[in-house]
Amino acid sequence: MRERVAIDLAHLPLHGRSTASPTWWGTLAFMLLEGSGFALAIAVYLYLLSNAPEWPIGAPAPDLGPGIALTALLLASLVPNHLVARWAAKDDIRRTRIGLLVMCALGVAPCILRIFEFRALNVSWDDNAYGSILWLLLGLHTTHLLTDLGDTIVLTALMFTRHGRNRRRFGDVEDNAVYWDFVVLAWLPIFACIYGVPRL
């Protein structure tokens, strides 16, 4: 087919950030599908609850300690998370590196608390359906914690290499921060289910 040149795009940047970046949208899409996974897992919880004559089944409600500590920690981590995102948006390599190190630590800590949380459930996955769904909810969220932690660690390592000083990497840091927000926010309804509902 014959062509005629209509526009020249040479002036465009070599890489877009946030809404102009496919990775940003990709992160959003993954959040959507994982979010629907979380929502369904919660729906399963409520469904089992609605069928059960008593809830929780054959166990005391989970102990609050580790869960509250973890929730507080996750909520607190949102602050440095947003700072990292802001520094990355300004292409500030030094601060971004420091921020990422902090975020690594703030990723490891909940994973440790999580171990205690599993113990505090007071029920095992193979006791009954209540135990099963509790472990599933917590397990599902733990997987997200772990994957995002892995992601953050690799990204941190990357920022300390020669590849770090790159707008593309800064964009990755921003996207990673968005994803961490998601991991934290997704936790809140699960927290409400696990700890709140049995106490209603």
């Binding site: 087919m1 014959r2 062509e3 005629r4 040149v5 209509a6 526009i7 020249d8 795009l9 040479a10 002036h11 465009l12």
Partner: peptide, 9 residues
């Protein structure tokens, strides 16, 4: 007649 296109990539 002719398809409009972009250049500059």
């Amino acid at each position: 007649e002719a398809l409009p296109v972009v250049t500059g990539l």
